[in-house]
């Protein structure tokens, strides 16, 4: 079943329209076997639409979409056999216990828990102590692990995860990504979408997507490398006032808040910002800190959005 194919997913010129709105506006990318591919973008960027088309749940309005070299429209039945899918909301049966959920998904895919236990062992072992508990009583992180176990139980070739870490605590998020990386090492091709920029670094390649368009596809390192300019982090005791003041300085190109710091780029990379400190002091700011920093994915995203 297409194991030797280099490209497990191939999308060319994909467009998707709902009545009035065009959600996906011409997207092309491909994912090769064993790759962990991330679709990074804010809510409403079109990530779920793309995934639903890939999982054969929706028709593309335009463009070519092939999974394992099969057509998503004609060959949807074959594709569905080799797909693991975790929709945005964890699709578990709330009134079934952990074990019953897993058993059910194993059954409908014509397999048993024992048969593929190896694949899910790392993940399932963590929730196995609670296997008689009803899914509705699980914490967000445990639900997520159960949903992943259910999506994996039939040993799919491609795993598609739609915002699996949304609404999950930081520790569980970290654990989850570690699991994905282990699954990737087992040769499963993984497509994952997320609104969290920090998760992008963990992917082999990412597509930054905004308003139904892909702005950039590359490895996280290269995307960061392409930033190509100096980035500064600025802080003062009155951050809100600082934003206003920085935006009114005409040598400054962009100002975005990142936690307690503001990330700014300036029009000329030769500028060492000594003038800026004087200006800010003149505006009455105290506790000013300025330092040069490395760009991260989010900085790149903001830059591309402009």
């Amino acid at each position: 079943m297409g194991n030797t194919l280099e490209n497990m997913v191939e999308v060319k010129g994909l467009k998707k329209s709902y009545e009035q709105i065009e959600a996906v506006k011409g997207v092309s990318f491909s994912v090769s076997k064993g790759e962990l591919f991330g679709l990074i973008g804010p809510d409403g960027a079109g990530k779920t639409s793309i995934f639903r088309i890939l999982t054969t749940l929706m028709f593309p309005t335009e463009g070519i979409v092939r999974m394992m070299d099969l057509n998503v429209i004609k060959d949807y039945k074959t594709i569905r056999n080799h797909l693991g899918y975790m929709p945005q909301r964890f699709s578990l049966y709330q009134d079934l216990s952990v074990e019953e959920n897993l058993e059910f998904f194993a059954r409908i895919f014509g397999t048993t828990i024992d048969e593929n236990y190896d694949l899910i062992k790392d993940i399932y072992a963590q929730i196995e102590p609670f296997k008689t508990r009803k899914a509705r009583k699980l914490s967000g992180g445990m639900k997520q692990k159960l949903a992943l176990s259910c999506a994996l139980i039939h040993s799919p070739e491609i795993l598609i995860l739609d915002e699996p870490t949304t609404g999950v605590d930081a520790v569980s998020r970290k654990e989850f990504w570690e699991m994905l990386i282990r699954l990737k090492e087992k040769g499963i091709t993984i497509l994952v979408s997320t609104p969290y920029m920090d998760e992008a670094n963990l992917c082999d390649r990412v597509a930054l997507i905004q308003n139904g368009k892909i702005m950039s596809i590359d490895t996280p390192e290269k995307i960061i490398g392409n930033f190509g300019r100096k980035l500064w982090a600025v802080k003062s005791d009155n951050v809100y006032q600082l934003i206003q003041d920085l935006r009114s300085v005409n040598t400054i190109d962009s100002v975005f808040p990142f936690g307690e710091y503001l990330h700014i780029t300036v029009k000329s990379d030769d500028d060492n910002l000594t003038d800026l400190i004087t200006i800010l002091r003149g505006n009455g700011h105290s506790g000013i800190e300025i330092q040069e920093i490395e760009a991260n994915i989010e900085d790149c995203f903001m830059e591309l959005m402009q």
Binding site: L57, Q88, S91, C150
Partner: peptide
């Protein structure tokens, strides 16, 4: 409503 249909449809059932 619960979104489980999405998974059922993707399954070979």
């Amino acid at each position: 409503e619960m979104g489980t249909m999405e998974v059922l449809l993707v399954s070979p059932l």
